[in-house]
Design a protein around this nucleic acid. Structure first.
Lengths: 202, 202
DNA sequence: TTGCAATGTTAGCGACCCTAACATAATGTT
DNA sequence: AACATTATGTTAGGGTCGCTAACATTGCAA
């Protein structure tokens, strides 16, 4: 059997290769040429499917958001609606995602010249956050917590995002080696939630 | 007057050029060639002063830590030792630094292949954090707050770092345009501090 | 079948990082 | 003062990369 002139699934093959390469070498270490080699095509082939290198990376990041949203749904639905376990599960998914796919995580949330403008990426990211807000709303309702659910969600997001970033970027390791990051998050998140004003019970 | 063969201050000139270029175009948009053009030397000249491109960027990042530490000292000393204003000032300096120099901020705290290993960068970063811990220790002492000051400092750092990152990377803007980030930080930090256990007054 | 659109290819431009070999200037030794 | 040594520039060039232009092959549709 000989290689056909046309690849057939080149677009998806390039995205898959890009994701694998980014995972291995980081975004800055990723080259389109490498992805082409891996897909077995010439370096000019991608331009039939993508405008430029950034567009492939945006697609990879968008798939990251989809993955994260799916993992979030899968983990939260194992606990009753409105339970604190659902919020904890969300934080855990976020943190573990960052740990397991740091380069992808950075592409999703980091500043990306030429990537952030991508519409598809924008939409998948928004959808992901909307799910978190929805969960926080349910939690607040079930626990008679007063306050803007979106603001609460933003505070929790900020905390977990900070912890995830400082972990994968090696900053914690420099000043506090061996730190129990998950414990730190759990403690802070608890205090953030317990210090919220509550509506008087009926 | 004609240009002398030797530059005389090339090392510092290159670092200055690099810092300015990183500020304008970001780390990924920075090229050593540009810095050489700006300094008026050939592209081979830097290698008499630096091992490679990463070493220049590490020097830039280290100067960023020194700047941040200086700003922290300058702002905190305007308030009495142990006062909450000193902690607030620290957070403000951190956040404003990220806003005013986002690219530099990312180089200081982001993952940097070939940069993070730099010893000088490592030392300046540690010194910067040590100052924060020292301030938190003073605050806890003055306010009879029980608990590991380093852990408290780490939690505050996490919160502010998350907020700074999500701001400069444009992530807040996507899901909550017009968000009052400083208010969000202040509220969360207050709740984190007020929910700490206190030693009984004598 | 035949023409067109889609999707590959090769060749090449310009930018970049870095090294090798060479040129010039500053410094120190006698 | 003459010379050797070291420091710090230069030019030339190799290898990689992103991207484009021109050409080749294939699938599909009239």
């Amino acid at each position: 059997m000989k290689k056909p002139y046309h690849h057939g699934e080149l677009r998806q093959a390039l995205v898959d290769a890009a994701r694998a390469l980014v995972h291995d070498r980081g975004e800055s270490g990723f080259s389109l040429s490498d992805a082409c080699r891996r897909a077995g095509v010439s370096t000019a082939a991608p331009y039939r499917h993508f405008a430029d290198k950034h567009e492939i990376l945006a697609e990879v990041a968008a798939q990251g958001f989809i993955d994260m949203t799916n993992r979030s749904r899968a983990e939260t639905t194992r606990h009753p609606v409105g339970s604190p376990e659902r919020i904890v599960a969300l934080g855990r998914v976020y943190f573990n995602f960052a740990i397991s796919e740091p380069a992808l995580f950075r592409m999703m949330f980091g500043q990306k010249p030429g990537i952030a403008e991508n519409n598809r990426l924008w939409a998948t990211g928004e959808e992901c956050f909307a799910y978190v807000v929805q969960e926080v709303v349910s939690f607040c309702d079930a626990n008679r917590i007063a306050g803007d659910a979106q603001l609460i969600a933003l505070q929790l997001w900020t905390m977990v995002h900070g912890a995830a970033s400082l972990t994968i970027d090696g900053d914690y390791a420099k000043v506090a080696p061996g730190l129990d990051v998950e414990g730190l998050i759990a403690d802070a998140a608890n205090r953030l939630l317990f210090s919220l004003p509550r509506t008087p019970s009926a």
